[in-house]
Structures are given as structure tokens and as C-alpha cells.
Amino acid sequence: MSKIIDTKDWCIKDTNSIISFETTSGGGWEKWDRYISIEGKKAFHIGNICGTCSFFFERLGGANGSNQGISPKEISEEFRKGITNLEDVFLSKVSLILPSGDYKVLLNEVIPEFIELGTEKDYFSNEQVQVWGMNSFWGLPHYPKVKYYRGITKELSNNSKLFEFIVPTFPVGWLEEETIEMYKSLISKEVKPTALCLSVLDIKEPADYEEETKHIQHWCLTHYIIDGHHKVFSAATQNQPITLLSFLATKEGIADRNDLSSLLDNLKTV
């Protein structure tokens, strides 16, 4: 389950954020691989610019030092209680810790489902293999190096499907049990705390595929958790909703503005 509560266009300029989007060259292209970096170190490989290549994300070494939330204290309490709408003053405070750029800001409610890699719920071992097959070099499914969560999966048309991912910066084993229990208690009282995410939409479709293959076009909406790991895990263990404040970067994914508008329309009708 995932549904939009509120949306807003937002621009962040001249921040001193420790988080950044980066690209590197490859295959004859000046910009090929895309990354999210923290303090100048690559934390996630978030795919390439190829629209026919398979979607992927992969946790990198730059995420190892990021085992604490990075939200300013003045907004942490509001995240703990859960926000219910998008106010400019609050978004301005949040913007201080995010990279410069243009965004679609989404406040959406989601029930996260924790995914064990290699199981029947793992996108990379199932839905992706059905369309792109195994990794051509290794002969194996993609391995993202971190367990993740899934949100909504929704058919958009006979040929396209939406997949929502919520990706932690650090693994579950680093979470503090006392904080987990605190959020479980809040969530059991129908409080919906808010996690902060930096998000990207990639639309991927293979150049070659079997004629009978269904849903060849994958709309992959990925939320990288900036702050709120304990909240997301606690909600997943109780199968209860929380909210995500997602800054969806409009120029960092494999999608244009029309695609982003279509995405929002589809999420509003869930």
C-alpha cells in the first residue's frame, strides 16, 4: 500500500549538504554511471543512463560511516510525531541537508515490506529476471549488497508496471533495539512517524525480449533513506503504515517531467 497525501514542486539552491548526486564516464559516454555520495564518498550506485539496461542499486563503501540520522534536531521531533502536510517553512529547514536541485516533494503513506535477498519477494531475483534474464557475466541475479523494503507494486498498463523500493543507507543489524521498541509503541498507537528520503524514478525497458513477456517496461521508484531507518523497520515488522517525505529529484533519474506527472497521477489513484 502506498498513497500520496500531498505534493509540491521544490527547488534547493546553494546548500552545504554532505549528500550529493555524482556521475562518472563509461562506455564512451561522458556521463554513464550515477551515484549518491555522502561526504564525498560514493554511498550508492543508483544505475546508469541506459534506458534499455536493467534497473539496479548497489550499496557502496561510502555508506559505511553513515550509521546515524542526519536530520537537524529542530526537525527530528516533527519527524518523530509524523508530518501531515507540506509547509514551506518546514521544507526549507529540511532542504539544508539535501543536495541542490529541482524536486517533486511527495508526502506519501506506505506500508514497507522487508525483503530478504534471493527470496520470492526479491525484485532482482524475480521480476527483473523475468524480463532481462540473469546477469550476462555472472549468470546470477543482481546483488544490491543491502536488504531493502518494497512499497507498492502496481500495473500501469498491459506493458508497464510500477515498483517502489525503500533502500536503507545501513543494514538492519546496526539498528538500536531500544529505538525500535519506541517506534513500535508509537506505531501501535496509530502514530505515523515520517522518514526522510532522497528519491529517483528510473523507467527501464529492454531492447530485446520474448514476445510473450509481460510488463516489459519497469517504472522503478526508489527512496533512499536519509533519516528514519528505525521508523521504517518498525513499521515493516508490524505491517503498519508510516509516512515518507520524499524529495524526488527531477533530473537525476531516467524519466522526464511528463513521466513524473504520470507517476504522481497513478499514486494518487491507489
Results as ranks from 00 to 15, higher is better:
K13F: 12
T15A: 05
N16M: 03
N16W: 00
S17L: 04
S17H: 08
I18V: 12
I19G: 12
F21P: 04
T23N: 12
G27D: 08
G27F: 13
W29F: 14
W29M: 09
D33E: 11
K41P: 01
K41D: 12
K42A: 10
H45P: 09
I49F: 13
F55H: 08
R59V: 06
G65I: 08
Q68F: 14
Q68L: 14
G69E: 10
G69W: 01
G69N: 14
S71Y: 11
P72K: 05
E74I: 14
S76L: 12
S76Y: 04
E78V: 10
E78W: 03
I83R: 00
T84G: 10
N85H: 13
V89Y: 07
V89W: 01
F90N: 01
K93M: 10
K93Y: 03
S95F: 03
D102G: 05
Y103F: 15
V105Q: 11
L106K: 03
V110A: 09
I111W: 02
F114T: 04
F114V: 05
E116Y: 10
G118Y: 09
S125E: 08
S125L: 09
E127K: 13
Q128G: 07
V129T: 10
W132K: 01
M134Q: 02
N135C: 15
W138F: 09
W138T: 13
W138S: 15
G139C: 12
R150G: 04
K154T: 07
K154R: 11
E155H: 07
N159E: 14
K161P: 04
F163T: 05
E164S: 11
P168G: 04
E176I: 11
E178Y: 06
T179Y: 07
I180E: 04
I180T: 06
I180M: 08
E181F: 14
K184H: 03
K184C: 07
L186P: 02
V191G: 03
V191C: 07
V191P: 01
K192T: 04
T194P: 13
A195M: 00
L196H: 03
L198V: 06
P206H: 04
P206G: 08
A207H: 08
A207C: 11
Y209D: 04
Y209L: 08
E211R: 11
E212W: 13
T213N: 05
H218R: 11
H218F: 08
C220H: 05
L221Q: 03
T222G: 07
Y224M: 05
I225T: 07
G228N: 03
F233V: 03
S234W: 01
T237V: 15
I242K: 02
I242W: 05
I242H: 00
L244H: 00
L245I: 06
S246C: 07
S246N: 07
F247T: 00
A249F: 00
A249M: 01
G253Y: 00
I254E: 04
A255K: 02
S262H: 01
L263N: 02
D265E: 14
L267Q: 08
